[in-house]
Design a protein around this nucleic acid. Structure first.
Length: 647
RNA sequence: GCCACCGUGGCUUAGCUCGGUAUAGCGACUGAUUCGUAAUCAGUAGGUCGGGGGUUCAAAUCCCCCCGGUGGCUCCA
């Protein structure tokens, strides 16, 4: 007999040789959503045979560890289906990933249309309730079993060498080299869906064999899978590329070049409203605005240290008759020169230099997509020149600024990250280790003092110093950097930035803070569009009111309404077409005006308007004056919610 | 950059497997209608099928090259 300790801290006695499943079903009655077990802290299959005293607890499918196992088993099921349907396909690796799994096969590429067929086969195999069995083999046997698959051989070379054996998992005719654990039967795999195919390389190395990758989702429950499918659908529905086209926000033309978006009038309105907001806000915080050239001499970027670190992401150099020039990938070097343009006194600090600059970065052509990854970035950039003891206040101000901005734009799902250097890999950075320690601790202290919740990101720092980033969760749950506040202790030395201190002496104890609270316009507007599904707050809406008449008889009054609104500063459009009212509403919805004003005989007579919200709610008999007053108030307040109809 | 998939009027799209110069809807325009809340009727125009080359009597369709779009590109079998 052996003693087995279970999760409830009870000790049970069993015959030697009982399986984990035997114990779990004895305690719980049945498996209760468990996919595997934890024996003395090690993940095991249900079929694991117990020979000595141990502790055991079930791993639930819904837990992180359980999902991992489910997804991993799902990858095997995929491989089983694929190798059956495409006998030449050689399985390579198939790990679980966030939301699901993938499996890479060495095979002819397949199109997305094959996925439903493969998925169908997977479902059939799952239904067959095939037992998933672990087998242990010696090295020679293993080598023989996978002699047809050079990828598995390579994995064995790496992972187990030529002496020791390892395990395989068998389900039906399919066997895969794997250390497990796995669920005990294919029938436990139910809530999965194949989503896409793509191409990858063996070992992620472009010089090695190209592989066909198949991605799938997998969850423990039907609801979770459904939720994720819906999330993906929703994201496609809100896609800024789709909405940007519908609303005429921007265009990309192949003659201009990819990654170089053109702002159309509606997008430009959005952009300029954001800029106006930033200019107003930053004026209140003591920023001064400048404009610097889009290109500069090579020596400038050498001085700043950017060229050695950033050469790949800068555009190739331009040879001119008086030297080599580069398009700027950042504004800081020029701002440093503005600082150095004259002797600075401690009384001027902190000196805050801001610019709506456009910087150019040479992103790999294959990574460019919509507004999210572009080669021309419009930035609400600024650099703050200050002493170390002023750093805390500047960070506090910027964190407050970011929080205020986000509240106004309606963003709620974001968090702060303290981005530190990678102390194992210091080649990527400039400056002395002790400077990194000092500044990193300083930032940590600032965040702690401000009681800002944050997480730390090792290796996420800029090459010149640590930073505080704001991580935003996209519709698909992906984390993206939005805002950033960076502490730079290296610029002082590179550019010899100093000030005259209280004693009249030259002081080099100067720090630079780089900050971009609104990311880049391109990225920001992409997120903003997806966040609001194009239904922007009134102050941002390219079209704030769309005037619609019931019939041509009201054209005259409607023109007056539109004119009054325009004069008051409300962006207004009017539709004089002789379409029916229903059709007009349907057509204008695409452009997502904040409000539609419906004008018929009633309104014409009473000199009122009927206000229709985006949701279709309506408020009738509003005098034009009242509406103008209310919408101006909403615009002025930069209200994130549209309240006029419900008020 | 590399790889896979895709590219048909302003937009969405049929046709491509098995070659015979193209389908429909929306939108635009014209006319009728003057209408009360997500499709009023009729008509007209609009496409060298992303670009170039090749095969062929004949190419949207097959082949090659280029351009563009989309997805993906170290993460324990």
């Amino acid at each position: 007999m052996i003693k087995v300790k279970t999760g409830d801290d009870k000790v049970h006695a069993y015959e030697i040789g009982i399986t984990a499943e035997g114990v779990i079903s004895d305690i719980l009655g049945r498996k209760h959503g468990a996919v595997a077990v934890l024996i003395d802290g090690i993940e095991r299959d249900f079929s694991h045979v117990l020979k000595t005293d141990c502790s055991i607890e079930p791993i639930l499918g819904a837990s992180d560890a359980g999902l991992y196992i489910l997804r991993h088993s799902c990858a095997h099921l995929l491989a089983q289906a694929v190798t059956e349907m495409f006998p030449d396909a050689k399985p390579t690796i198939g790990p679980p990933i966030e939301h699901g799994f993938y499996y890479d096969f060495h095979m002819e590429p397949i199109s997305k249309d094959e996925l439903p067929k493969i998925e169908k086969r997977m479902k059939e195999l799952a239904k067959q309730n095939l037992k998933i069995e672990r087998e242990e083999h010696g090295n020679t046997k293993l080598r023989k079993m996978f002699s047809q698959n050079q990828f598995k051989a390579e994995i064995m070379d790496d992972k187990i060498g030529h002496d020791v054996g390892s395990s395989t998992y068998r389900q039906g005719n399919f066997v895969d080299l794997c250390r497990g654990p796995h669920v005990s039967s294919t029938s436990e795999l139910r809530w999965f869906k194949l989503t896409s195919t793509s191409q990858a390389y063996w070992r992620g190395d472009a010089k090695r064999e190209p592989l066909t990758r198949i991605y799938g989702l997998c969850y423990a429950t039907k609801e979770d899978l459904k939720k994720r499918k819906k999330q993906i659908e929703e994201a496609a529905f809100r896609d800024h590329k789709k909405i940007g086209k519908e609303m005429d926000l921007y265009m990309i033309n192949e003659l201009i070049g990819k990654g170089l978006p053109v702002w159309l009038p509606n997008g430009e309105l959005l952009k300029s409203e954001i800029e106006r907001f930033a200019v107003e806000t930053e004026k209140a915080y003591g920023y001064e605005r400048v404009t610097t050239p889009v290109l500069a001499k090579q020596e400038l970027f050498e001085t700043s240290g950017h060229l050695p670190h950033y050469a790949d992401s800068m555009y190739p150099p331009m040879e001119m008759d008086d030297g080599t020039y580069y398009l700027k990938a950042m504004n800081c070097p020029m701002h440093h020169l503005i600082y150095r343009n004259k002797k600075r006194s401690y009384r001027e600090l902190p000196l805050r230099i801001a610019e709506y600059g456009t910087v150019y970065r040479n992103e790999l052509s294959g990574t460019l997509t919509g507004l999210l990854r572009v080669r021309m970035l419009s930035m609400n950039d600024a650099h703050i020149y200050c002493t170390l003891d002023q750093v805390a206040q500047e960070f506090a101000d910027n964190i407050k600024m970011i929080r205020d901005y986000y509240a106004t734009f309606g963003f709620e799902d974001y968090k702060f990250r303290l981005s530190l250097w990678d102390s194992e890999n210091t080649d990527k950075y400039i400056g002395l280790p002790e400077n990194w320690e000092i500044t990193q601790n300083h930032l940590r202290q600032i965040l702690d003092d401000l009681e800002v919740p944050y997480e730390e990101g090792e290796g996420e720092a800029a090459f010149y110093g640590p930073k505080v980033d704001v991580q935003f969760t996209s519709l698909l749950g992906r984390e993206e950097s939005m805002s950033t506040i960076q502490l730079d202790f290296a610029a002082q030395e590179c550019f010899d930035l100093t000030f005259v201190d209280e004693t009249g002496g030259e002081n080099s104890n100067l720090f630079v803070i780089h900050r971009a609270p609104l990311s880049t316009h391109e990225r920001f507007i992409a997120f903003l569009t997806e966040h609001w599904t194009g239904n922007f707050p009134t102050w941002l809406s390219p079209i704030q009111t769309q005037v619609i008449t019931i019939s041509e008889k009201q054209n005259k009054y409607a023109s007056k309404v539109a004119e009054t609104l325009e004069k008051a500063g409300v962006r207004t459009r009017i539709d004089f077409s002789d379409n029916t009212i229903g059709k007009k509403i349907r057509m204008h919805r695409k452009m997502r005006p904040a409000y539609m004003l419906i004008i018929g005989e009633e309104e014409s007579k009473k000199k009122t308007v009927a206000i229709r919200s985006r949701a279709g709610e309506q408020r009738n008999d509003v005098t034009l004056n009242d509406f103008v007053k209310e919408i101006l108030e909403e615009i002025k307040n930069r209200s994130a919610e549209l309240n006029i109809v419900l008020s």
